[in-house]
């Protein structure tokens, strides 16, 4: 009897052990390919490579390769991923809010409902700045200026239809002006827009906080507000919401798996990502890159994407970039 019982207990132990250790063991065996739907050096590329580095160093995957498929705000990569990664347990895709916008403006054949959201990873605040020489001292000064002359309030920021452009439209709308009238000058990225800001050729600018952090800290640019829902440690500028303007817009990035993957594979990948994100290595990396943790698990992320898609569509329609 004791013999039998101990055998039973042992069997239970093994079963329990298998249950609790198997996914971990499987995660360590993962051989992943992450698609960055952008060229080398861009935001998605660096996010993919950061994930590659930490997943391998924390042992949550045995090998990770990054493939760059640049094109059309990520929609070329997305289309290729939907076709090539269907049901695949080891292919991942990086994406973000810009892709949501690009899908709409480019009338892309696939949207993000075609892939399996695994986790939201990072979310960077956008910052609204004016040149140091600008007469505008506060956000309400700027809003006043927009209301007074929307045409001559010239904005500088990243690509047309991107997150920067959307925020300028939201602010214009909140100021009581027509968002279709926003005078937004698109640059190829935060860098070129920065030169226009420093040269005093434009009224205000929008970019990821990290990109302009140096100029904000040195006093060359005055940060009026950030678009994050709550205040962030180490950033002096207060959220729009805290300043009585009901706008939030976060430049989020997330990770996706292919369409129609099995629940088992999905669970394995989710767990590997969750463990990576919890690791101190990931937190250190976020700090080094100036990224904010915006982790959300699969279910929450899926619902989030649905609401973002709806919101982005309505913003782009108000600017006139989508019907």
């Amino acid at each position: 009897m004791t013999f039998f019982r101990s055998r039973l207990a042992a069997a239970w132990l093994i079963a329990a052990g298998a249950a609790s250790f198997a996914p971990a063991a499987m995660a360590q065996d993962l051989e992943l390919t992450i698609m960055a739907p952008a060229g080398a050096g861009g935001g998605w590329d660096s996010a993919a490579r950061a994930l590659q580095e930490v997943m391998m160093s924390t042992g949550n995957a045995r090998s990770v390769q990054v493939v760059n498929v640049p094109g059309a705000g990520g929609t070329v990569g997305l289309a290729q991923f939907v076709q090539g990664a269907a049901g695949s347990p080891n292919q991942l895709l990086v994406g973000g809010i810009t892709m949501v916008g690009a899908i709409i403006t480019n009338k892309a054949p696939y949207d993000l409902t075609a892939v399996t959201p695994l986790a939201r990873l990072t979310g960077d605040p956008l910052v609204v700045v004016v040149p140091a020489s600008s007469p505008y001292q506060t956000m309400s000064d700027l809003m006043e200026g927009i209301k007074g002359d929307v045409e001559r309030t010239i904005w500088a920021g990243g690509s047309a239809g991107g997150a920067d452009h959307m925020l300028s439209a939201l602010i214009t709308q909140a100021a009581g002006a027509d968002p279709a009238k926003v005078n937004y000058v698109a640059y190829s990225g935060g860098g070129e827009a920065l030169a226009a800001m420093l040269g005093g050729q434009v009224t205000a600018g929008i970019s990821g906080y990290g990109e302009w952090q140096g100029q904000i800290e040195s006093g060359d640019l005055r940060a009026l507000a950030i678009s994050y829902p709550e205040a962030i440690e180490g950033i002096e500028a207060q959220p729009l919401k805290a300043q009585g303007i009901d706008i939030e817009l976060v430049n989020w990035r997330g990770i996706f798996a292919g369409p129609g993957i099995s629940d088992e594979d999905k669970a394995t990948l989710e767990q590997a990502i969750a463990k990576t994100v919890e690791s101190p290595e990931w937190q250190d990396l976020l700090k080094a890159r100036g990224w904010s943790d915006y982790y959300a698990p699969s279910d929450e992320f899926t619902a989030f994407i649905a609401s973002e898609s709806e919101r982005v569509t309505s913003i782009l329609t108000s600017i006139g970039l989508a019907e």
């Binding site: 860098g191 070129e192 920065l194 420093l198 100029q215």
Partner: peptide, 8 residues
């Protein structure tokens, strides 16, 4: 000086 990358 600006943290501004002007080429790939």
């Amino acid at each position: 000086t600006l943290g501004l990358p002007t080429s790939a």
